[in-house]
Design a protein around this nucleic acid. Sequence first.
DNA 1: GAATTCCTCATACTTATGGATGATAAAAGG
DNA 2: CCTTTTATCATCCATAAGTATGAGGAATTC
Lengths: 210, 210
Amino acid sequence: MKVLLADDHDLIRQGIKLVLNKYNKYAKILESTNFTNTLTTVKNNLDLDLIILDLFMPGSSSTQTIKILRHEAPSIPIIMLSSSEDIEHIKSALEFGANGYIPKSSPNEIFYSAIELVMSGGIYIPQQALNPDRDHDSTIESALTERQTEALQLLAKGKSNKEIARMMNITEHTVKSHITIILNHLNAKNRTQAVLHAQQAGMISSLQKP
Amino acid sequence: MKVLLADDHDLIRQGIKLVLNKYNKYAKILESTNFTNTLTTVKNNLDLDLIILDLFMPGSSSTQTIKILRHEAPSIPIIMLSSSEDIEHIKSALEFGANGYIPKSSPNEIFYSAIELVMSGGIYIPQQALNPDRDHDSTIESALTERQTEALQLLAKGKSNKEIARMMNITEHTVKSHITIILNHLNAKNRTQAVLHAQQAGMISSLQKP
DNA sequence: GAATTCCTCATACTTATGGATGATAAAAGG
DNA sequence: CCTTTTATCATCCATAAGTATGAGGAATTC
């Protein structure tokens, strides 16, 4: 297996190399740290099995990079890497021909799996690219108290005030009090917006069932 | 982890159980071998983490099955299984709300990885399901009509009925008509749930700011 | 001990949502 | 031509959601 690792951060390249080596002990790993370097490496190694590409690399915009690489090597799978979880960039990367996108914050298992699937010809789209990210703590979050946060979690499951009241063992009145504060804090005009904003701010625990 | 394994072939269920057990030693695996059985099991176990569904099972057509299951449990990930690699079937399965599709011929590693990724919230699309025009067909839409879909998009931005009415150039009455149908279709009790279910089903262009 | 914050509950009111039901017109398809 | 689907609008009604305002008790902080 021959992989190109295009990222300008030494540390990250190091980490990925470890993962790749676990995935395949005999993987041949090429590296590049800027755009021109990446491009020439690709041109000279059209037998690459995979390109792992940082979203932000000196020398070219992310979409441009993908576009050009796709043109040079239409059949080599490209996995995008990014520390930021900027949704627009992810979207355009996938549109321009990337085969997968992996947030750098992904646990190793996800990383393995995504590489495996993309190498086998599939496309992997992570949760974050579908629903806005939820990993970084926000300034808004600290503004909500414990009970308010509890209410928000239930709100974010689509529960009604009555249901929330029952589940939190308080009256509907109190729920309304909480919700009003939540709406204000999230700058939302109604509960649906509150949920959306909360999702965007990463304030909602991810693995819950409605 | 609680998984429903819906397949009428003993052998296949056996094999999948092995894979699942490797994936998670303590996975609780339910089984069903026909459509009605599958449906009741789902209804009685809305806390399922995953449904693995054979494309061809006695009692219902494949798309119908997906459709109905999606309706009953809009937020449970569904992975389709199939021995045929009929592209049309794969496509319609994905269109009707499956979160992933795995050919039975897949090597175990792919199988394992796909389960992992779908469970973590992503969508896995295998090579077979992709045609030349990859940007056009990746939209996962449902049986909602055009105007209903439009309304849903606005709903999913947290807009009120009044706002939706203004933006769609119709009366609030009509908006309500649309929304009522949307709620039914998504098996949601209120608009917030509708948005959540639609997000899960991949029915919203979720890359938009609220 | 006083002030503050949080949680709780309450009343009263306005507006939003959602369901039931039905009518009309246009378009599509047999 | 007839049927079905879709989109539109409508009325009536019940319930949900949201706002304003205040008040009491517990815990915390100053």
